[in-house]
Amino acid sequence: MSDALINATGTTTMTMAGAINAGLRAAMERDPKVLLMGEDIGALGGVFRVTDGLHKDFGDDRVIDTPLAESGIVGTAIGLGMRGYRSVCEIQFEGFIFPAYNQITTQLAKMHYRSQGNITLPLVIRVPYAGGIGAIEHHSESPEALFAHTPGLRIFSPATPQDAYDGIQQAIAAPDPVMFFEPKARYWDKGEVNTGTVETRLSDAAATIGISGSRVAREGTDVTLVAYGPTVRLALQSAELAAQAGTSVEVIDLRSISPLDSDAVVKSAKKTGRVVVTHEAVTTFGVAAEVSARVTEQAFFHLHAPVLRVGGFHTPYPGATFEHEYLPNLDRVLDAVDRVMKH
């Protein structure tokens, strides 16, 4: 990628989009059965340019501009998967995933179970998601909970270029279907990427551990602030401001939504006694509700305050002029931190 710089330390500075691109390239070079499928991913390089240059280098047979039909993309990728192909499907925007919802939930998620393990479908579905980019309808939503509610799928969302680079390769190497939710507002954030680590992990027997576990993004002692994908940066900024006001916030980046690394959250909750969860998705029946339930079940007597959720409201994603108020922001996250601290 043109924006990649190799540093003296051996790491490379990459945007998240560039890191996914580099990860896809590495996976395609490693395994000839890896295919990319999607709309406008060929000569154009995808509407976000995440597949930039891959069509030129890998050709029509491996970087496939598909007909404009999302169910068709996922459904044919399932058939290709039955012949051993590992398709990485790009859904152009999360709001357009619903034509494929049937294929994903009734077929992709259930085939391994239905076949009693005789058919594995190592597909990856890349979904640019979440808001904050001033877009029109269907281009800013966060539907991850709909898929996390479906057994048989793994759900991952990177917050950093490093996790994007490692995660996309681990997702491709995993034998289970993985939905890879890419926070599109973070596509152009830069970070250091060590391109040397992922291969080792992939050759490990527990290849998917990397995409199953959370990470502590910042240590703290008073409040546990749980985030993933687009809200991790917000959580870190909130923690910084809270620290200035004397509150020590521990930030957990879930990374994986299914499975949910609740052990790490519970461990932190037992330490701090206060938990706030933030995501862009509609709050009701969402990931934060699941985190809250697990913390309550497993750390009830350690809690000093109810678990609070900061997320999208129970409205359709509003016009872009409203999104600063609709989305979790510093004020709303810090308000929740204040409220749990008052207990």
Binding site: D61, G75, I78, G79, L80, M82, R83, Q103, Q107
Partner: peptide, 23 residues
């Protein structure tokens, strides 16, 4: 292949499988 109860869903699997045979 196994029976598919969601009407028509398997036609896409068939097509993808055929694309794989071709490859």
């Amino acid at each position: 292949h196994l029976y598919t109860l969601v009407i028509g869903a398997h036609a896409l699997h068939a097509t993808g499988y055929a694309m794989g045979m071709d490859r």
